[in-house]
Simulated scan of single mutants.
Amino acid sequence: MAQKTRLKSDTVRYTTREEVEVAIKEVGDLQRELQRIATHQNDELAAITEKYAPQIAELQERIKPLQKAIEVWCEANRAELTNNGKTKTGSFNTGEVQWRQRPPSVLIRKAEDVLERLRQLGLSRFIRSKDEPNKEAMLAEPDIAATVTGITIKKGVEDFVITPFEQGV
């Protein structure tokens, strides 16, 4: 197996405070340029989307009645197309149609009311209770929480953030 080539990025080393200040300004300048380009890109994408939206909408509207008419005809001729229900697909020279059964789903309105009714009816098997560690409580009492095997309280994690001052945009 051939050895992979490692690519290392150039590391710049600064020796004075002034060099770091110049570099921070450069980071800010580059971030603003990046933002300008991203904004310009989004403007162009929006213009392209707006340009093609009417054509797309018109084509979608032309497709809808064709789909409905095909569905009506196929429903009327479903037995013939599916070999009396032996298949779920009807084949044509130009394509096929399919009937697919969606999996069962549950729709719940007013979940609190439903939970109460399930409890009243003794149908607790339809109620899920979820036990999970309470991290907020552990952070409120980190010394006690840290005594439990498997719990580690991270403290003092430090991020290095460069925030260039705004220059003229």
Rank of each mutant, 00 (worst) to 15 (best):
D113W: 04
F165S: 14
Q35T: 09
A57K: 06
L7F: 11
Q31E: 12
K8N: 14
T11N: 01
I127S: 14
E96K: 13
K4E: 15
S124D: 04
G150Q: 02
A137E: 12
D131E: 09
A137S: 09
T149K: 11
N84T: 05
V114A: 14
N42A: 11
L123S: 12
I153H: 04
A137V: 03
T49R: 14
E71T: 02
A137R: 07
E96R: 11
T149H: 08
E21F: 13
V20H: 12
I48W: 01
L139D: 00
D10K: 04
E21R: 13
A38T: 06
K110M: 00
A76S: 05
D29I: 01
T49C: 05
K68F: 05
E19T: 07
S124L: 04
Q167K: 08
D159E: 11
T5P: 11
C74A: 08
D113C: 05
G168M: 00
A46H: 03
E33F: 11
N42H: 14
E19K: 01
A111C: 12
D43N: 09
A145Y: 06
V97D: 09
W99C: 02
Q120I: 10
I24E: 07
F160W: 13
I151V: 14
N83K: 06
K110H: 04
V148C: 00
P103H: 00
Q120L: 11
E75C: 11
I162S: 03
G95S: 06
T147W: 09
A76P: 10
T94W: 06
T49G: 07
S9K: 09
C74S: 04
M138F: 14
T5C: 08
K68Q: 06
G28N: 08
R100P: 03
T94K: 10
Q101N: 10
V97T: 13
E44Q: 15
E18K: 15
S91Y: 08
I162H: 03
K86E: 07
